[in-house]
Amino acid sequence: MNHNDIRHKLSDYIDNAVSAGERSAIELHLAACDECSNALEELRRTIEQVQEIEEIESPAWMTGKIMAKVRAEADQKQTIFQRLFYPLWVKLPIRTVAVLFLAVTAYYMYQNIDPSERYPAEPMGTSAQKDAPSPSSIGKKEKVLPAPAPEAKKLDQEPGYRSLDMKYSYEQPAPPTPLKEAAAPAPTAPAQTQASGGAASGMEESEIMRSAAPETAHDKTELPAGSAAEKKAKSPAKAHSMILPAVSDAPKIILSIAVKDLKETEEAIDRIIGDLKGTVTHKATISDSLVISATLEAAMAGRLREQLATLGKVREKGPAPETQAGKLQFEITVTSITPSEK
C-alpha cells in the first residue's frame, strides 16, 4: 500500500475495520509519515467533535401522540377483524332476523300486488282514458299490433302480459274469456284499425267502456254489415250473451231511456209491459244500467214508446216497427242520470 492508499484507509483503521495485514502496514507507514499521522490525529478529533454533539430530548407529548395514532390504527384493525370473524352466536341471530325481515317484506309486497292482479281491467281502462294517445302514436301502435296475432298459441300467456300491452286498454273490460274463445280477440286488432283508424274512435271506445255495456254492443252493430268492425262487435256481444239469453231471430227494437231512479223506473216499465200484454223475457243490471228484454205485439209498440216517454227521454235504434208484424222484441236499456252526466 502506498501513501494515498493508507490515507484512504485511515477512517477504517480508526474503526478497527481493517485486516491484520493492513493494520501492520498502516502502522509501519504512520511511524514514517508525519503527514499521515497528522491526518489520523485530525480525523480522530473530528470524530470526537461529532460525537460531542448533544442529543436532544424528545418532547413530553411525543409518546402520547404516537400512542393515540397507534390506538386509532389498532381500533381500525380490530373493527375489520371483528366484522369478518364474528362468532357464530352473534352471526346466527343477525342472519335469522335478516331472513325473517325479507320473508315478511316479500309477503306484504305480495299482499299489495295481489288485488291489481285480480282486477287488471279497471286500472287499464282509466289509464287508457288518461293517456289519450295522439293520432300519430295510435297509428304506430296499431301497425305493431297485428304482429302477435298470427301466433295464436302465444295466447296462453295472455293473462301475464295483458297488463303490459296497450291493446287491452282499448278493449272491453270483459271477464276473462275461456281459452277456446281466446282466438277471437286476435283478429280484432287489425279489424279495429280498419274500422276506426283515429284518435276519435279511441276516445269513443274508452267512453263506451265507462257507460252502459249493451249500448256499446249495439253501437257496433250499426257499422256496415260484413265489415271487419262487425267482427269486433261480436267480442263485447259475446260478453252480453253470457248475461242475456240467446236472442231469437225476431225483429228487435232497441230503446234506451235515461231516468233518475232505476228501481222506480224498473217497476214502471214492468207495469207498462204488463198493461200492454207483453212479457218480460229477461232482466239484467250492468253497472248503472238496467236492460230489460220484452216481447210485445207489434201493435203495442207505439203505446210502449208513448208510455216510456213519460218516464224519461227515449232514444230508439233498430228497424222501424211499422214495417214489422206479429210479435216484436224490445230491449229497453234504462240508464240512470248521475250528477256527472247532468
Binding site: 442529543e55 424528545s58 411525543m62 409518546t63
Partner: peptide
C-alpha cells in the same frame, strides 16, 4: 416507543 423515540428523533 419510550425506549427508542429519543434516538429516532435525534
Amino acid at each position: 416507543v419510550n425506549r427508542h423515540q429519543k434516538r429516532m428523533l435525534n
